[in-house]
């Protein structure tokens, strides 16, 4: 499995280009992080990648097939997208919520089958929240809700999981839990993940590849270790940083410390 974006460009209406000639690709089991300051169009980029918004130029290619030639339902059987804001209006039970992830497989006039319910229960166990199945989504914590949404995304058995700032609203520990889960999914299920994030630290910690965006159509794509360095962070985020390495149990843990910004 390979997801590739070739020379993607996008602009709103006839306005200025938000981004131009972006190309990147990821293979199964890889995690790609997209970094960039506010308003640079990270969310829009994800929507273009999934086909929810049309590229102005360029295309997304999934296993050699351009996305715009595929049927919507078959796209969403392969790609799962978890948007940023989710306010739960109706307090569906966790299992009901996760079951909605089966929608790409369920006919318009049909109800979920026993098999669909079993799949939903399985994904709850994969994510480690089977005990929440009967709880209303309004009665669980923000961290648990994020896990529910990941379970819902996994219920459609995707090859690519796309998350828009999944760590926002999560506390320190929950952020780590979620990233650990994504790493496990990438390793064990050979899932490809594309993650929008504000934190270079998170990117450094979990991703194999990174795409950095900055205002004025600047972008940079490559291996995370090569892309995230002090010079690039300075130029993309306008923040002066120092990357420090801590040795812990023989492992190098890198962290980015902000020093100053103009």
């Amino acid at each position: 499995m390979k997801l590739e974006v070739r020379e993607g460009s996008f602009q709103y209406g006839s306005g200025k280009a938000l981004f131009k000639n972006i190309s990147f690709s990821i293979k199964e089991g890889e995690i790609l992080t997209i970094l960039g300051p506010n308003g640079v169009g990270k969310t829009t980029l994800l929507k273009c990648v999934t086909g929810m918004m049309p590229w102005k130029y360029g295309k997304t290619i999934l296993d050699g097939t351009p996305l715009d030639t595929m049927k919507k339902t078959s796209i969403w059987q392969k790609i799962s997208y978890i948007p940023q804001s989710h306010n739960v209006v109706f307090p569906y039970k966790v299992l009901e919520m996760v079951l909605m992830g089966r929608a790409p497989y369920i006919n318009v006039f049909s109800m979920p089958s026993k098999k669909d319910i079993r799949m939903a229960e399985q994904t709850l166990e994969t994510v480690g929240i089977a005990h929440l199945a009967g709880k209303p989504c309004s009665k669980i914590s923000g961290g648990e809700l994020q896990l529910v949404l990941i379970a819902r995304a996994l219920a459609s058995e995707p090859l690519v999981l796309i998350l828009d700032e999944p760590e926002s609203h999560l506390d320190f520990r929950n952020q780590l839990t979620m990233f650990k889960l994504l790493q496990t999914l990438a390793e064990k299920k050979q899932l490809s993940c594309i993650i929008n994030t504000h934190y270079p630290d998170h990117a450094l910690r979990i991703s194999h590849k990174t795409l950095m965006l900055a205002h004025g159509n600047q972008h940079l794509f490559g291996k995370t270790r090569e892309v995230i360095n002090e010079a690039n962070i300075e130029s993309f985020f306008k923040v002066n940083t120092k990357i420090v390495t801590i040795k812990q149990n023989g492992k190098d843990i890198k962290s980015i410390v902000a020093l100053s910004h103009e």
Binding site: K47, T50, M52, K72, T73, I75, W76, Q77, S80, Y81, I82, P83, S85, H86, N87, V89, F90, Y92, E96, M100, G101, A103, P104, S156
Partner: peptide, 15 residues
Amino acid sequence: NILSLSEEEAQSLGI
């Protein structure tokens, strides 16, 4: 159920 979610979520569930 799916329609009652946000538009983006509904779209990304393939409907």
